[in-house]
């Protein structure tokens, strides 16, 4: 169990299967955090994963903050907090790339 967050060690989530060693795992976590930051910004949410604590920290503009274990929990939490699920096929994510940036 992690003494900082209280999570017991759990078998990895399927989304974490692409890394073979610690360095790749860490790189993947930073990249995941960057993507989530960008995607969740329009929903008024901030994401932090410094690589030290297990889990992904998410906070909203009202001061709520929580740590979730994996991406499945991220999407469930966002839906719970904002009342809508993040749908990648929503027009805001399907604009031609030039306009999306």
């Amino acid at each position: 169990m992690c003494s900082a967050c209280g999570y017991p060690a759990a078998p990895g989530h399927w989304t974490e299967a692409g890394a073979a060693n610690m360095a790749e795992r860490l790189r993947s976590r930073f990249r995941r955090s960057d993507i989530l930051k960008h995607v969740l910004k329009p929903y008024g949410l901030n994401v932090h994963d410094g690589g030290l604590l297990p889990g992904i920290q998410i906070s909203n503009q009202f001061g709520s903050q929580t740590i979730v274990r994996d991406l499945a929990e991220v999407w469930a939490l966002v839906e719970q907090w904002t009342g809508t699920a993040v749908d990648p096929l929503n027009p805001k994510f399907t604009m031609p790339p030039a306009k999306a940036s």
């Binding site: 989304t15 974490e16 692409g18 993947s28 990249r31 993507i35 999407w75 699920a85 993040v86 990648p88």
Partner: peptide, 16 residues
């Protein structure tokens, strides 16, 4: 890369 694909797919499966 795998990370962006898995972030995208996990969101897609959650919503749709």
């Amino acid at each position: 890369d795998w990370t962006s694909f898995s972030v995208w797919l996990s969101a897609l499966l959650h919503s749709r």
